[in-house]
C-alpha cells in the first residue's frame, strides 16, 4: 500500500454551470497534517466535503486507504454509485468535524459521543458510554458528559464533536473550518485538541483560516483559488519568500489578524 491515506484524482465538481473544483489531484500522506487554505469560495470546503462524500463529485475519483469512495468504475469504464453498504465501510475510516459542530440537540454530550457506538457498532449502552467517556476525557470534557449542547460553549461543543468523531476510531480526521464559528477566545482550546491529535500521528486534513495553525502544525499545505489547486508543499517552502503572487495577496488580507507574525 502506498503512503497516502487519501488520493484525489482529477476531481471535478460543478454546480450547474459553475465549476467549483477544476481537475484537482492531491495526495494526503498518512500520519501527517494536511491543510487546505485559500480565499472564501476557492472550493477548499467543497473538496473536503467530497472526501467525506457529503458532496458528489461530477467527475474524477477519490480513494480512501486504497478503496474507491462513492463511485466505482465497472468493466466498461462507466462510473456507478457505490452500494450504501460499501460506502459506509469506506466512510467508517473517516471522521468529520464541521464548522457548525452539528451536535444533536436532543442528546447529551455523552449521548452524542456514544450514539454511533451503539447504533452503528451495536455496542451495549454501558460499554458504549464507557468508551465515549474516554473520548470526552481526551478532549477535557468528562465533567460535561451530562450537558446538552445548548448548555455548552461553542468551543466545548466543537470538542464534543471531535470526541464524537474519534469514538469510532477513524484512521483519518477531516476538519472543515473547525474554529470559524467560534469567538476568538474559544479557538485556542479546539486548536490544542487538534495539536494533541497531530502529535499522536493522526492523519488529518484541515480546511482552515488559521494560517498560524497551518504553518506550525501542518506538514503539507495546499493552496486553492477559484476551484484550482495552485500548489501543494511543505509550510517552510510555501511561506518562504518570494511567495506565489496569489498567496501573497491572500496573506495580505490576514495581516490585520496578526497571522504574519506567526509565519
Amino acid at each position: 500500500m502506498s503512503d497516502n491515506a487519501i488520493s484525489v484524482q482529477h476531481l471535478v465538481k460543478r454546480f450547474g454551470t459553475t465549476t467549483v473544483l477544476d481537475d484537482i489531484s492531491l495526495e494526503i500522506p498518512r500520519g501527517q497534517v494536511s491543510c487546505l487554505i485559500g480565499p472564501s469560495g476557492s472550493g477548499k470546503s467543497t473538496l473536503l466535503r467530497c472526501m467525506a462524500f457529503l458532496e458528489e463529485a461530477t467527475d474524477g475519483s477519490i480513494f480512501i486507504e486504497g478503496s474507491p469512495l462513492g463511485f466505482v468504475y465497472d468493466g466498461a469504464g462507466k462510473r456507478q454509485r457505490q452500494s450504501a453498504n460499501d460506502l459506509r465501510k469506506v466512510r467508517s475510516q473517516i471522521g468529520m468535524v464541521f464548522q457548525q459542530f452539528n451536535l444533536w440537540p436532543h442528546m447529551t454530550a455523552l449521548g452524542n459521543v456514544s450514539a454511533a457506538l451503539r447504533r452503528v457498532r451495536k455496542m451495549g449502552k454501558a460499554e458504549a458510554e464507557e468508551k465515549a467517556m474516554l473520548q470526552l476525557r481526551k478532549v477535557g470534557l468528562e465533567n460535561r458528559a451530562g450537558h446538552y449542547p445548548s448548555q455548552l460553549s461553542g468551543g466545548q461543543q466543537q470538542r464534543v464533536a471531535i470526541a464524537r468523531s474519534l469514538a469510532l476510531e477513524p484512521k483519518i480526521m477531516l476538519f472543515d473550518e473547525p474554529t470559524s464559528a467560534l469567538d476568538p477566545e474559544l479557538t485556542g482550546e479546539v486548536l490544542n485538541v487538534m495539536r494533541g491529535l497531530a502529535s499522536e500521528g493522526m492523519t488529518m486534513v484541515v480546511v482552515t483560516h488559521e494560517i498560524g495553525f497551518a504553518a506550525t502544525v501542518g506538514n503539507q499545505i495546499s493552496f486553492l483559488d477559484h476551484g484550482k489547486l495552485l500548489f501543494t508543499d511543505a509550510p517552510s517552502k510555501v511561506f518562504a519568500k518570494p511567495r506565489h503572487p496569489r498567496l501573497e495577496q491572500f496573506l495580505d488580507t490576514y495581516l490585520d489578524r496578526g497571522a504574519s507574525t506567526l509565519i
Binding site: A52, L54, R91, F98, N102, W104, A115, A116, S165
Partner: peptide
C-alpha cells in the same frame, strides 16, 4: 432539522432508517 445534523450521522455510518429514527 439542519442538514448538518444529518451529515454528521451519515459520516458516522448511520443508515437512513437509523438517521430517521435517532436523529
Amino acid at each position: 432539522v439542519p442538514p448538518g445534523h444529518v451529515e454528521a450521522a451519515e459520516c458516522l455510518g448511520f443508515t437512513r432508517i437509523q438517521i430517521i429514527r435517532n436523529i
